Computed example of a mutant assay.
Amino acid sequence: MPAIALVPCSAMRAYDGMIGGMSESTSGSRAPAEPAAEAEAPHATPFPSAGVLTPRLLAGEILCVLALSLGAAAVSAAISFVGALTAPEPLAEQTASLVGPQAAQQRPWLDLTRQISSLVFAMAPVALVLYLLYRSRESARTIGFDLTRPSRDLGMGAALAALVGLSGLVVYLVSWQLGLAVTVAPSALNESWWRLPVLVLQAVKNGVLEEVIFGYLLLRLGQLGWSPVRSTAAVALLRAFYHLYQGLGMFVGNLAMGLVFGWLYHRHGRVMPLVAAHSIIDIVAFVGSAYLIGRVGWLPGG
């Protein structure tokens, strides 16, 4: 096997120069050298440095979240209530449906598809809130939205649901008898095999959506310097306003519910018991109404 000669680098450079000169003299012009690979690639835009959350940024963040979720619902509920007050029929003779069909009864699969789609996209504000928390180097655990204490959270939520749910039912029945509430139809879905699962999912959606956003609002308002009493009152008032379409009685009932939930959040720092309680209340209301309205005389809407 022949030996490989090691040529010094200086000799190699001289050889390359001689070959380049010969090529230039042969072609008459020298081809331009190709630019370096680094020059060809465009420079990547650097990531922005993490900014400090100022009160102005926090206020803008809160307004954006409200405009995309419960704030918009509160405005819509207030408009609906004005419409109900100015209607020729009394409040008790008007009906508000919470979960209704989204397609004709002859097209159940289209209705199911739209129900699932609305459930999925209703979680967008929750995703936004969690993203904003992570971006500010916090997390869902900051507001207690996690599964670290499932048994305790579920037990507390069930007890709270029994207390608040029964109280809310009494408020609704009394206010309806006094003509201060519309007839609430929690479920107006058509008869179908998927009606019960959709009602349960709708109830859980309400619990997650509302309580996670309220936990976020209480956290941010506290960071803005609001006292627990002031922030709880503001959030409870918001909860009452977006239930105003159900009448004055439910406005008062949800205001009381908001005060209790806000106090519990400040006491324990967790929204999971509130999510569980809200979900249980709505599951009982949605599923119960589907089987009881029209079968018991004391429940409006029969």
Rank of each mutant, 00 (worst) to 15 (best):
Y291A: 05
S117A: 14
L98F: 04
Y134P: 05
R239D: 00
V229G: 09
L178V: 10
R230Y: 04
A162L: 08
G17R: 14
M123L: 09
E138Q: 14
R13D: 14
H278E: 01
K205S: 07
M12T: 12
A285E: 07
L219Y: 13
A3M: 13
T183F: 12
G215M: 08
L244Y: 04
P108Y: 13
P46C: 04
A14G: 03
L221A: 08
V75P: 00
S97H: 10
L58C: 09
V287I: 04
A36M: 10
V75E: 11
I116K: 00
L119A: 03
M156F: 10
I280A: 09
A78Y: 13
G165D: 15
S167H: 12
V208S: 06
A140W: 13
A59V: 06
Y172F: 07
A3P: 03
D16V: 12
A188N: 08
W109V: 01
E211P: 02
P273E: 07
M272P: 01
Q105D: 15
C64P: 02
Q246G: 04
I283D: 02
M18C: 15
N254K: 13
Q106F: 12
Q202M: 00
A44G: 06
G21P: 04
P150S: 05
W263V: 06
T183L: 12
I283C: 02
V200E: 06
R295K: 09
E211F: 01
L189Q: 00
F145I: 04
G83K: 07
L57P: 00
R137C: 11
G207F: 08
I143M: 12
V229M: 09
V129F: 02
L221C: 10
A44Q: 12
M250H: 09
T95G: 00
A104M: 11
G144L: 12
A11R: 12
F251Q: 08
Q177S: 07
L248H: 00
V208P: 04
A96Q: 10
L112C: 04
P2F: 11
P108M: 12
Y245E: 13
H243N: 08
R149G: 07
G297S: 09
Q105K: 14
T232N: 08
A127H: 01
I281Y: 13
A77D: 05
S97M: 13
T26V: 12
V200L: 04
L68H: 06
L218H: 10
D153T: 03
L98M: 11
Q223S: 07
A203H: 05
S227Y: 06
S167K: 08
T54W: 07
M257Q: 10
T86N: 15
V296C: 06
A74E: 11
L68W: 03
L110M: 13
F261P: 02
S97P: 06
A277S: 14
E191N: 05
L63P: 02
V171C: 13
R152Q: 14
R267V: 03
M156R: 15
L217C: 09
H266E: 10
D146F: 01
T232V: 10
E89M: 14
L130R: 02
G258D: 06
G294M: 03
G100H: 04
T95Y: 14
S118I: 04
A11Y: 15
R220K: 11
G100C: 00
P35K: 09
P48W: 09
G60A: 13
G28C: 12
D153Q: 05
A127S: 01
G165A: 03
W194Q: 02
A84E: 10
R270H: 00
I4G: 06
G207Q: 05
V184I: 14
S151T: 15
V212R: 04
